[in-house]
Design a protein around this nucleic acid. Structure first.
Lengths: 132, 132
DNA sequence: ATAACGTTTGTTATAATATAACATATTTGA
DNA sequence: TCAAATATGTTATATTATAACAAACGTTAT
């Protein structure tokens, strides 16, 4: 049975804000932005974020404690994320590279551990910051 | 000139605890453990952690806000980390795989961004937890 | 030796990030 | 239609991390 997931009110509001932002958003900055829409408490934000992550609509950029909309797998549940992060301007880009994905999906270490998902973050200098 | 880095008192104390632990340690759990040694404030811990990371002696497991000793590059500054994390027992292992390291070191995306370092975290089930 | 510099320490206060616990409402599905 | 699952609202609190300032220490060049 195909599950068509409809988002709840809070989830829609929060996804909308994250999608419209062109940078990763922090939970409390999201909270600030949605207070006029009736979402008053951190927990309401965190609960929506949790669900949106589970659905693959957004990702958490772990090293930055920030959240970005998924640009790659349209509406699919994505458990494999790769980001490039500029350490100067903090610009974050989700990388979609088939070869890399395939390589990582098939990676297995000596221990025989099964990997269900991964998160890879590259840190460096973006082309703009490299110039200046 | 080769710089032989000697650690300061606090740095030694904190590195010692992290090295002796067989699991990632949280900053405040480290703090609790070193209070008998005179380290009383969070900032003292965080400052030592920051330095130890810079020296490559320890790594931060970003998704867990926890710190582990570097098992791989003995005393070298390590900017390329790969961890496997069991989502059930939370066991964390640093992975040292030459092929993977080489692959990631040479990776470059379309944008031309220069990567100085990366952090990769695999999540899954370790062999022990798989059995039960 | 000592001045100058960078690093480390100690300390208090506070900011930023995230979850617990409980009551109620809403949606979904057999 | 009623039971189960999901979502909401709310208050309180836990956890993680940094700001700001003053003092001590360590290294190096004179």
């Amino acid at each position: 049975m195909v599950q068509i997931q409809t988002l709840s009110k809070n989830q829609k509001i929060i996804l909308d804000i994250i999608e419209k932002a062109n940078e990763p958003l922090k939970a409390y900055s999201i909270l600030f932005n949605v207070q006029k829409k009736g979402i008053k408490a951190p927990l309401q934000v965190y609960r929506a974020l949790e669900k949106l992550i589970k659905l693959g609509k957004i990702h958490k950029v772990e090293s930055r404690n920030a959240f970005v909309a998924c640009k790659n797998s349209n509406c699919e549940i994505s458990k494999a994320t790769v980001f490039s992060i500029c350490e100067t301007c903090e610009k974050v880009t989700e990388i979609s590279n088939q070869k890399l994905s395939k390589y990582l999906k098939n990676f297995h270490d000596k221990t025989g551990m099964t990997y269900k998902k991964y998160n890879l973050e590259f840190y460096g200098l973006c082309t703009t910051c490299k110039r200046s």
